[in-house]
């Protein structure tokens, strides 16, 4: 399995990569081997990009794990899919690795990832991957128990090469808390974070206002 991590953060600091890694761990326990590539680093030079394309050519399953940025993928992750698609259109690749996505947004509703998931599904189809499943996760704290259960089900399906059961979506589709509660808790968290930096009273600053 090849884990493509779309977050700018290091693998161990990124929530989406950490959850992707949790799926990889489950498969490694079943005897799979894995590689991981940080897309932000992979698109910096032609040589890094070449290594990314080679890793994809070796993979039987590609897990694309990324955070949601402005309703889509972070720019370097888009740069990567542009390059991957161009490479795979050259006709020199004949295999169709299976393709799974895991997108995590900072809002509580996993459905806010839908547009990004559709973009990735179009990419997978255009670039000659076999689309298996798109797992959408909302924000908020640690990996919930039912997401861990979903990863168990998904790992088993990948290992047995069977269709991904609807249970994966059922377990991940529901927000972990009501939206109103997420707003209250999230705003508390932002204010506390700003207070630690000594800017609690500046959260609403408007540095680019025309009168400033």
């Amino acid at each position: 399995m090849l884990l493509l991590a779309g977050s700018p953060k290091r693998l161990e600091e990124s929530d989406s990569a950490r959850i992707g890694r949790a799926l990889v761990d489950r498969l490694e326990r079943r005897g799979w081997t894995s590689e991981a590539v940080r897309l932000h680093a992979a698109v910096r030079t032609e040589e890094d990009l070449r290594e990314l394309l080679d890793a994809i050519d070796r993979a039987s399953v590609v897990l694309f794990a990324a955070p949601l940025y402005v309703d889509s993928l972070p720019a370097p992750a888009i740069r990567a899919i542009e390059a991957i698609a161009a490479h795979r259109r050259t006709g020199s690749v004949s295999r169709s690795p299976r393709f799974v996505t895991l997108i995590r947004c900072g809002f509580v509703e996993p459905s806010q990832n839908d547009t990004c998931q559709r973009i990735l599904q179009r990419f997978a189809e255009r670039a000659g991957f076999e689309w298996l499943a798109g797992v959408s996760l909302g924000g908020g704290g640690r990996i919930p128990k039912r997401v861990r259960e979903a990863l168990d089900v998904l790992a088993e399906a990948l290992d047995l090469e069977i269709l991904v059961p609807d249970e994966v979506e059922r377990l991940t589709r529901k927000p972990i808390m009501p939206s109103w509660l997420y707003v209250v808790g999230g705003n508390f968290m932002w204010r506390r974070w700003a207070a630690r930096n000594g800017v609690k009273d500046r959260l609403r600053d408007r540095p680019y206002a025309l009168d400033s």
């Binding site: 993928l73 888009i78 899919i81 559709r118 973009i119 255009r126």
Partner: peptide, 8 residues
């Protein structure tokens, strides 16, 4: 148009 989305 990049798979229905924006370019990098």
């Amino acid at each position: 148009l990049t798979f229905g989305g924006y370019s990098s």
